[in-house]
Amino acid sequence: MIKMNFLKITSALFLSIGIGLSVATPLSSPKASDTFVFTAIPDEDESRLRQRFNKVADYLGQKLGVSVKYIPVKSYAAAVAAFRNDQVQLAWFGGLSGVRARSLVSGSKAIAQGFEDKAFETYFIAHSSTGLKSSPAFPKGIAGKVFTFGSKGSTSGRLMPEFHIRENLGKSPHDAFKKVGFSGNHSKTIQLVQSGAYQVGAVNFKVWENELKAGKIDTSKVSIIWKTPPYPDYQWTIRGNVDGRWGAGFEDRVKEVLLNMRDKDLLSSFPRSSFISASNSDYQPILDVAKAIKLID
């Protein structure tokens, strides 16, 4: 095989790379201009997200009369980047990722939130071996424990719990705890606290309730020790330039279609009871908190 003519191989290599690149380039820019694309932050199990959002894509496509596509991403930051780069025009963001995305894309708007997102909560959960019990007051006994957040960019898994930790313990999480981890998402936070790998964790209350219903939680091992005061969270955010691409009034129609989502299956997959109108100013408290703990400059 070594005897094969060097020139032949090299030229084949070049030719194919040349062809490859010239093919890959048009492939990578398909008729995206008429497809309305959206994404969502990967806050929990991805197959569940994919199932949910493919249904949403069908629903939106049907109601809007344009082709609609959902693309999955692997991180909160990737969702924001895709929105910023106009590779998606609509996104299901958390409070913090939404604030970030809107500050990067002028003219973008929060148009709808879940009914529950007006007053979202974070649960602090602990492994039974810690002896920590549920209480209405902030559990100061978590100081010095091994603690895990969810994703670094999460509102319910990072921003709000860090804020309350700083408020109540007077220290950064790094100084307040023996060790601090970032599990990656809410499902994993529950898993890791349940196994005792981490003693205490902060988790999105909706994901907790969902997993509890699904029978994935052994409450003799992991339980809720504190619930945060309510704060605004998830919302649908849309780019400002959609009317120019899909016709005047498109943004309003997307909003209307989202608010009119009545399909029980679809809503319970979020899980939300309904969608209600939202605006950028609803998320001012999130921006203030993010600035206070220096997650946003």
């Binding site: 094969m4 084949a12 062809i19 492939l27 990578s28 398909p30 995206a32 895709a82 590779q87």
Partner: peptide
């Protein structure tokens, strides 16, 4: 992975990468 198949693979490979979003110079 044989040298003699490499040409064929390389010609086919770019077609198999799949599409993606627009690349915008502005970004």
């Amino acid at each position: 992975l044989r040298l003699k198949f490499l040409g064929v693979y390389l010609i086919a490979a770019p077609f198999l990468l799949g599409g993606g979003a627009d690349i915008k110079l502005g970004n």
